[in-house]
Design a protein around this nucleic acid. Structure first.
Length: 106
DNA sequence: GCCCTGACTGCTA
DNA sequence: TTAGCAGCCAGGG
């Protein structure tokens, strides 16, 4: 899909879909992969517009904030996200994900 | 073409 | 440590 006319949204979904199970990625890192190191906000915006149809195909719960912090503005709820990540074997450190251990690096 | 909003990030008080 | 402000990118009205 690389180089497709999917737009920024498609690119974000694709990148998130590339995150393996048990791993997490931050908005900043994700934006950087898209070629926009300062586009973390745009990434979050793209996920916010994530259609329900892709919600089951795109592991949006693997996208966390800086340092593995879960955004309190998560649409489905940060609790659900945390629970889902933990179900994948992701280790938590209080309110944060152990990005040092599960951080996804392209 | 302009203004506003937003699941972010980093710095400063 | 916590709270607030400014800067950044993309899309919709």
């Amino acid at each position: 899909m690389e180089g497709r006319d999917a737009g920024f949204f498609g690119r974000v979904y694709e990148a998130v879909r590339a995150v393996p199970k048990g791993r997490v990625i931050t908005y900043g890192q994700l934006a950087r992969l898209l070629g926009v190191p300062r586009g973390a906000r745009a990434v979050g915006w793209a996920l916010r517009a994530l259609p329900r149809s892709l919600e089951k195909s795109v592991p949006w719960h693997r996208v966390v904030g800086m340092g593995g912090r879960i955004s309190p503005r998560a649409g489905a709820g940060p609790l659900l996200q945390r629970r889902r990540l933990r179900a994948e074997g992701v280790r938590f450190r209080g309110e944060r994900v152990d990005v040092e251990r599960h951080g996804f690096a392209a």
